[in-house]
């Protein structure tokens, strides 16, 4: 297990956001977490990257307990969070955004090499490397966000709603991208409301409902689940 979330609970004031949530990710796998708005999916990711503190439970990453660790150290350990809404630095160029993804790395040559690789994978970013990120299209911005995350050399990539605001064609493009990332040995935790995308890339799934895990298991289970079909596919 690269990541084990053990029975975490989290409150925003008095409101319970997460109730005894446990999630496990095997090294090298793609796991998806689905659920409606407000189910607590993003909160799990924010707790993982240290943006919010959990009230109880434990988070273990590569054999180390990481709840209570600062966001900087979490990135250093290899968990990189590509947040919902992308949160790019809009006035900075694509290059600068990518450089900032490598903020904690000291190996200049490695950074250079990784950036070239990223440009190979995302030729459109190469074209736009000197353009400010804020001027790109939604799909391009999402690519920058993912690429920026990759620049930190993650072991576990947390993707929060990458399909949000993208056209169906762009969403289709995300499938090979995520798969490629996974093939380089990076584990992925994909949070999605777009169940189609989630089912196409993940091998395992968790469904959250008002802060609780209501369903978990192999992705095939989700594909055949009536609940999932009713809730997300409109059948």
């Amino acid at each position: 297990m690269i990541l084990s979330i053990k029975n975490i609970s989290l409150y925003y004031g008095k409101a319970m956001a997460l109730d005894n949530v446990s999630i496990e990710i095997e090294d090298g796998s793609v796991v998806t977490m689905i659920g409606a708005n407000g189910a607590g999916k993003s909160t799990v990711l924010r707790a993982l990257s240290g943006l919010v503190k959990i009230n109880s439970g434990e988070i273990w990453f590569s054999g180390k307990r990481i709840d209570g660790t600062s966001p900087t150290n979490i990135v250093k350990m290899g968990i990189v969070h590509v947040p919902e809404g992308r949160r790019l630095f809009p006035a900075l160029s694509v290059m600068s955004n990518l450089e900032l993804g490598a903020s904690l790395r000291k190996d200049k040559a490695g950074i250079k090499k990784d950036m070239n690789e990223i440009f190979e994978h995302f030729p459109r970013l190469l074209e736009r490397r000197n353009q400010s990120a804020g001027t790109l299209s939604g799909g391009e911005q999402q690519m920058v966000a993912i690429a920026r995350g990759l620049m930190a050399k993650p072991k576990l990539l947390l993707l929060d709603e990458p399909s949000l605001g993208l056209s169906p064609i762009m969403v289709d493009e995300l499938v090979p991208i995520i798969k490629n990332i996974n093939q380089t040995g990076v584990s992925v935790l994909l949070v999605e409301q777009n169940i189609g995308l989630a089912l196409r890339v993940a091998t395992k799934g968790y469904a959250l409902q008002v802060g609780k895990v209501v369903m978990q298991g192999d992705i095939e289970l989700f594909k055949s689940s009536d609940i999932v079909k009713r809730a997300y596919l409109g059948d």
Binding site: K76, V80, F89, P90, L100, S103, L104
Partner: peptide, 21 residues
Amino acid sequence: KQGLQMRAVAQDLEGAILQGI
């Protein structure tokens, strides 16, 4: 690099935190 990080923080605080800045 520090200057770039400053500009990043100025433009998106949470985005900057998530880069480990």
